[in-house]
Nucleic acid binder design. Structure first.
Lengths: 245, 245
DNA sequence: TACTCACTGTGCGCTGACGAACATAGCGTT
DNA sequence: AACGCTATGTTCGTCAGCGCACAGTGAGTA
């Protein structure tokens, strides 16, 4: 039904040395991630780690009263399911597909085995986790200090960075859920962006018309997170001294 | 000038098997952490990992305009400087001593060497990091959805959990910096708690009088974080299949 | 004793976001 | 063509938190 994407569209898999990748490749299972699908529920043990190739996944914290907030977003640059190799097996947050697409998944025990080889994949996973931490921290600050207008810009740019096109399928209602704000608030902020000619949207389809314009309006949080991803994920670490006796 | 605390007051060090601990012990340098001291600055390479024994350290995100927000707090249950073993070396956040006390520190290269032994310390560090991630995520949600009153309760309880006494040396001004709110807001919220008989404060000294009362007022975020720490840090993982060929 | 400074308390007006209610407008179905 | 559903637009009163200004008050110091 859909043609298979190349696993190496995912940056983590692409960054592996060829021999490592070739050992891993037969273990990767292709999966289609449908809009709204859940990859992880609060407190439930995850069975797989997911490497998106062109899907986007939101990590959400859900409160007792149903209110939620997106704490991070994962695309082809990363991986969903860090708790599997960090040791906790579960997290208190949910992982929901925000933009449909493809991914490759790896069974939990296989990920752990690979992780404990202490090779390049471990390096990548840990560095990615640190970048994710930065994203979460910056989200916390942004929630505290910045206006909805700015946060919407940040959210649009973060999504755009993880998308092959400049079109985003997402209703204002859903964006509101992600940001943890009212739908009307998103309508209002999005209206401003539309009137300013930065975006166009129509019944669940958002088209970014002027990316530099968005970047001019966004708060510093966006750049900080992006820069940290670049720094952590492109840097090629020197061969390490394992200190193993 | 101050008597030396036992390194094993720190839960991470205490959780190590005796042989592991004994190898590490001679490498640990005792340090006094003075109120307000900085253990990490944004973007600067950390030289040490710190294991507090009775000090409390705040991890802060600072914005361009000087506004800041605490994204996590670390006491004797944890460690400051995860970026050293996660691979990034630096973080965009600051680490400031919030409550003076003692700690033991370990030079960065030594931490890495220990980490790559892939033994119990690695396990502990990774599990702790996951707990820290939960704390940061929950902070983000709390910033979005909960009132200052509730957040103050959360903050007081988080601090109290990491303190040997029920007295906290901290001005309202500083609390405001931590929470990323106005000083007057803290004055008002703290006034409510004082009038309700839950706390007493006087010029930078806060005494918790009624902990259950605070717990009754705090939002769910506090319990979620605490539960996750308990789950991650007390669970003894089964011997793992390293998958090493 | 008086002075100073840090800490706390209080009172404004302002604004951004909330909650609720309701109006309009596309799209698919019958 | 009529209907229904979903998505978007708008309004209105309320409120928490902001920024500012200033007043009290205790601790330390000269």
């Amino acid at each position: 039904m859909t043609q298979q994407s190349d696993p190496r569209q995912n940056s983590m898999l692409a960054a592996l040395p060829l021999d490592e990748y070739q050992r891993l490749a037969p273990l990767l299972e292709p999966v289609e991630l449908k809009l709204g699908a859940s990859l992880a529920e609060s407190g439930e043990t995850m069975r797989y780690v997911y490497f998106p190739t062109d899907a986007i996944v939101s990590l959400l914290c859900v409160m007792e009263d149903g209110d939620s907030t997106e704490i991070a977003v994962v695309g082809a640059e990363g991986v969903v399911g860090i708790s599997l190799f960090m040791g906790g097996e579960t997290t208190p947050s949910r992982a929901i597909v925000q933009s449909a697409g493809s991914a490759y998944r790896l069974r939990g025990p296989l990920v752990k085995a690979e992780f404990y080889r202490a090779g390049p994949l471990q390096d990548l996973l840990l560095r990615y986790t640190q970048a994710l931490i930065t994203q979460m921290a910056q989200t916390a600050v942004c929630n505290r200090h910045h206006s909805l207008d700015q946060q919407l810009c940040r959210w649009l740019l973060l999504s755009l960075d993880r998308l092959p096109t400049n079109e985003l399928r997402m209703t204002q209602e859903l964006i509101a859920n992600m940001l943890g704000v009212r739908r009307e608030g998103v309508t209002e902020s999005a209206g401003k962006l539309q009137r300013a000619g930065l975006i166009a949207y129509h019944r669940g389809r958002i088209t970014i018309l002027d990316r530099p314009g968005l970047e001019a309006r966004v708060c510093e949080c966006y750049a900080i997170v992006k820069k940290e991803y670049d720094r952590l994920m492109t840097y090629r670490r020197p061969p390490r001294d394992r200190g193993i006796g």
